[in-house]
Computed example of a mutant assay.
Amino acid sequence: MSSSTHLLPFEHTPEVPTVSPWCQRWREGRHSWRHLRDGGFDARRYRVDVVPESVAKPFVLTHHYSHSYPAAKVQLGLFDVSGRARRLTGVAVFGVPVSSAVLTKPFPDLEPFTQSVECSRFVLLDECPGNSESWFLARCYAALLEDGVRGVVSFADPVPRRTASGILVMPGHVGTIYAATNAIYAGRATPGP
């Protein structure tokens, strides 16, 4: 995080517990929550497809809390196909991290940016029912595997983010979806500036 965002320092905010029955959703940069007990996910209503950056980027810029778009290799969209027209309800962006060490440290035998990528953005609209994210992420991993990707690095951000005036702008997320899709927790990354 850059100092121009006026966020409180990393070490001054507590982490969110790592086990949670809540699913985080986004719309226009604001978070909402769905409880797992609410369920309601029906895989017959959804499809996952590669989407061009021209579709993914505006969606991510509008709905992800960072309002930024990373260097991307591939973007996948979650589409609700239950109505007359397909509606984009989520986007996952896999791409190029700031440093190749992000990929080579956990995957020393994989070619970075080709066989290994970073999950740079993952955002679902608040209308998506509980468990949508793990289903979507599993389909993303399958598509990446078909494209030759053998390793994905993902980061959770369990520390709530506040403005200098104390307004909560992001409550933190713990990466429950990664655990639900058999990811291996590799520890905390070095805190950024």
Rank of each mutant, 00 (worst) to 15 (best):
Q115W: 06
E146T: 10
R121I: 08
R139W: 08
I167H: 09
G166R: 12
E111L: 14
R139D: 10
E146F: 05
L144G: 03
E146C: 12
F122M: 15
V169P: 01
V149L: 08
S154L: 09
E133T: 11
R121A: 14
V149Q: 05
Q115H: 14
R150Q: 15
L145P: 00
S132C: 14
G151A: 07
D147H: 03
G166A: 09
V117I: 15
A143I: 12
A143Q: 13
E111F: 02
T104W: 11
R150V: 02
V153K: 02
S120C: 12
G148T: 06
R139I: 01
P129W: 10
A142K: 13
G148S: 05
S132Q: 05
E133N: 09
S116P: 04
R162A: 00
A156W: 06
W135E: 00
C140A: 15
G130Y: 02
E118A: 13
A156N: 06
G130I: 04
G130F: 10
P112G: 05
F136V: 08
T163F: 09
S134G: 01
G151V: 11
E146V: 08
D109I: 04
R139L: 10
D109M: 02
P112R: 08
E111G: 00
S99V: 02
V123H: 03
A164C: 06
E118N: 04
A101Y: 12
S99M: 06
L137G: 02
P158H: 11
T114K: 10
D147P: 01
V123F: 06
T104V: 11
L145I: 00
C128V: 09
L110Y: 13
K105S: 04
